[in-house]
Amino acid sequence: SKPARSSRRQFIISRREKSMNFDTSRFADIREKPQLEQLLAHMITPLVETPGILMITNMLLYFQPFNDISSVPVFKYQLCTIKNLYRRRFIMSHCGLELLFADDRSLFLTFRSKEVRDHVFNVLSKQQELRLHKEHSLENMQLKWSQRKISNFQYLLFLNQQAGRSLNDLTQYPVFPWIISDYTSNSLDLKNPRTFRDLSKPIGALNDQRLSALRERFAQMPDTPECPRFMYGSHYSTPGYVLYFLVRVAPEYMLRLQCGKFDSADRLFSSLAGCWTSVLKNHSDVKELIP
């Protein structure tokens, strides 16, 4: 039966994982000392979970994938280049840990439990080589933004990071709000309030006519414990929406999500003006932008 095959497959995978050992010959420096026993972990990139072994020394963090698909047998990260550590959720489970580096790279890892994740976080936090950027607090970044020392883009990306969003997870991808509402004029009048979107309202409430129709539908819906009433049938951010904008930047993501095929041509992103019209009028389209 299908459950039996799945159980056998999981047993084989689990047995193989337990038999794997970290290759200590990959240490970059003879002065390195392991700070914890090797741990099973998954490296998360968009739509891909790569199982492997995590090793932390007093100088570097290593991730050794189980597979040999990558041209790099072991990923190495110097602890002194880590600027921030974040506890993350992954698939609604508090088992993730994301490391942000000084060169703006990131590493998203997941573990078997919250306890294991917290243990790794604590071990990393105690390392003397770690140089976390404590000036990146919410208050300091807000002050820098208000003084125009950082851009709107940098500030919004920071807020997304603080909210638990990550470029490595399409289900929790950073959200950037629509700001401009005029996509037809040859030039923008920045002194005209109508040039800008009303940020006091969610995207689904910008069009009064659509909002009235949604409220009417909401009032007519049956309300049961199994299926409670809802205002919007979609969300402002989903993996599909993210891929809608990234289809030309990272077409491989859509191919992974849709079994090697692109979406229908009429559903691919082609115009910012057309997209804005859709999110303003379409009853099932309330997506915000991405970085």
Rank of each mutant, 00 (worst) to 15 (best):
L36K: 01
T195F: 05
I82A: 12
R217M: 03
A265W: 09
C275E: 03
Y244E: 11
Y62V: 07
V72I: 13
M59Q: 10
T24N: 08
C80L: 01
F90P: 00
L100W: 14
L211W: 12
L211K: 09
L170R: 09
S237E: 07
F90R: 02
M231H: 01
N282H: 11
R26N: 04
S113G: 05
Q172D: 02
M59F: 09
T110C: 13
R5H: 06
R229I: 03
L199C: 04
N84F: 03
L138M: 08
N21Q: 01
D23P: 07
E32V: 04
N186L: 14
F111S: 01
R9D: 09
F75S: 08
V242Y: 03
S71H: 11
G274R: 00
V123K: 06
E32Y: 06
L199A: 08
Q38E: 10
F176K: 04
Q154S: 14
S187Y: 12
L85I: 15
F108C: 02
F22C: 06
W145N: 10
D285G: 04
E32Q: 11
F66V: 03
V116R: 04
L138T: 06
P65N: 10
Q38T: 14
Q64Y: 11
I290N: 07
T224A: 03
L39D: 08
F196W: 01
Q154H: 15
S7C: 06
L39R: 15
L100F: 15
Y173P: 12
R31Q: 13
F269N: 03
V74I: 14
L206D: 05
D208L: 06
I30N: 02
F90V: 00
R89L: 11
L157Q: 13
F153V: 14
N186A: 14
M20N: 03
M20V: 04
Q142C: 13
F176H: 11
M141T: 11
E32L: 00
D118F: 02
L47H: 15
R194M: 09
R117F: 05
G96D: 08
M55Y: 10
Q147A: 14
N207D: 06
G204Q: 15
P177T: 05
I69Q: 15
L243K: 06
C95E: 04
P225G: 09
F262C: 05
A28D: 02
S200R: 13
V116F: 10
N160C: 13
D285I: 01
L211N: 07
N192T: 01
P239R: 02
K114H: 12
T224D: 11
D104K: 14
D182S: 01
R267T: 04
F176W: 08
C275L: 09
S7I: 04
R26K: 11
Q172I: 01
H94N: 05
A219C: 09
N67Q: 15
S234A: 08
L47D: 13
K114S: 08
R210G: 05
P193F: 10
L54Y: 08
D104Q: 14
R87W: 05
G274C: 03
L156D: 06
Q209K: 15
S284E: 06
L100V: 11
K134T: 10
S212F: 10
L206K: 03
I56W: 12
T57W: 02
K126Y: 07
S237M: 15
T24L: 06
T45M: 10
I203Q: 14
D285H: 12
L130P: 13
L54N: 07
E37G: 14
Q38N: 00
E129C: 13
N152P: 00
R9Q: 08
K144S: 09
